[in-house]
Computed example of a mutant assay.
Amino acid sequence: MHPALPFPTGPCPAHDPRVAYIVDDDELVRGALGSLLRSIGLEVRAFDSTEEFLAAARADGPSCLVLDVRLRGQSGLALQQSLLQLARPPIPIVFMTGHGDIAMTVKAMKAGAVDFLSKPFRDQDMIDAVTAALDSDAKRLEEARRLLAVRNGWDALTPREREVMQHVAGGLMNKQIAAEMGIAEITAKIHRGQAMRKMNSRSVAELVRKMEALGVVHGTH
């Protein structure tokens, strides 16, 4: 089994570079692509085999993979399937090939490839494809970090605060929550306020959306 690439979960510094990985067993292609992508300000990490790529650490910031379909050893399509089987979201892939056909393209795109370019391709087509892939990964990372912040807020709640939040999500008012839980109304109000603060929610609607995103809404009244 291939090692899983590390998944960044911490804050994304504004200076994190965008990284383009290149996997191609042709040294001239790797060099030309590297120069092209560096010319638009990207950090480039190039490999001559899928095994070498899989053994490397993944960048914390947005990244994408420019991948040749036909390689010595494991093919590009086989690498795509390996990445899909890992326990983390796969890196966006831009495929390139000099031997592409319709069936191969369809297979790659159905498996989530961002684009499929036939060699020789225009420099601008590669730049556009890589930019789209990086934008997609940046959005995914931002959503993942936002969800992590919500999860941290939920984990910070006490069991009683979580119970109150379930009732809030179910549409109950403080007085009804107090009756359901056998506590004073002021106590229910305090728990609710503390939980809303920990969850960084300014409204019940915002709170419920966050709870739904975490999958912790147990039902409504």
Rank of each mutant, 00 (worst) to 15 (best):
H99V: 00
V208P: 03
E185Q: 15
A149R: 11
D115F: 00
N152I: 04
A138G: 09
V150H: 11
F116R: 12
H2W: 14
Q85C: 05
M165D: 11
P13V: 02
A103T: 05
K198F: 00
M96G: 02
P11C: 02
M199S: 05
S118P: 01
N174Q: 14
D16W: 07
A133I: 03
P90C: 10
M196F: 05
R146N: 07
F116K: 12
V66G: 06
V29E: 10
A129G: 07
S49Q: 02
D16E: 15
V114T: 15
D125S: 14
A195R: 07
P120W: 03
A56L: 09
A46I: 01
R88E: 13
L67I: 00
H221R: 14
G182F: 08
M104F: 00
L141A: 09
P159V: 05
L148N: 13
S49K: 01
H15Q: 12
A132D: 13
A78L: 09
D123Q: 15
S75K: 05
L148M: 13
R160N: 09
V164F: 11
H191M: 06
R72A: 13
H99E: 11
D137P: 06
A132N: 12
D123K: 15
I91Q: 01
K189E: 14
I186Y: 09
Q80H: 13
V94P: 01
E143G: 00
R72L: 10
V106F: 10
P159C: 10
N200T: 07
S82I: 07
T131M: 07
K119D: 10
V217H: 10
G112I: 01
F95E: 07
C64M: 06
M165Y: 08
L207G: 09
A188R: 02
K107Q: 15
R70W: 08
V168Y: 06
A188P: 00
G171N: 08
S49T: 14
D25N: 15
A179R: 14
D48M: 05
S136A: 15
D25H: 14
Q194W: 03
Q85S: 13
V23Q: 06
A55Q: 14
P92R: 04
E142K: 14
E143L: 08
E43P: 00
V44T: 10
L84R: 13
V204A: 08
H2V: 12
K119Y: 10
H218P: 00
D60Q: 12
V168G: 07
I177W: 07
D101C: 04
I183W: 04
Q176D: 14
A55V: 05
D26K: 01
S136D: 12
T220M: 06
L71T: 05
A213V: 01
I183Y: 04
G100Q: 11
K110W: 01
A129S: 15
L37R: 08
N200H: 12
H167I: 01
I102E: 14
Q166G: 15
S82G: 01
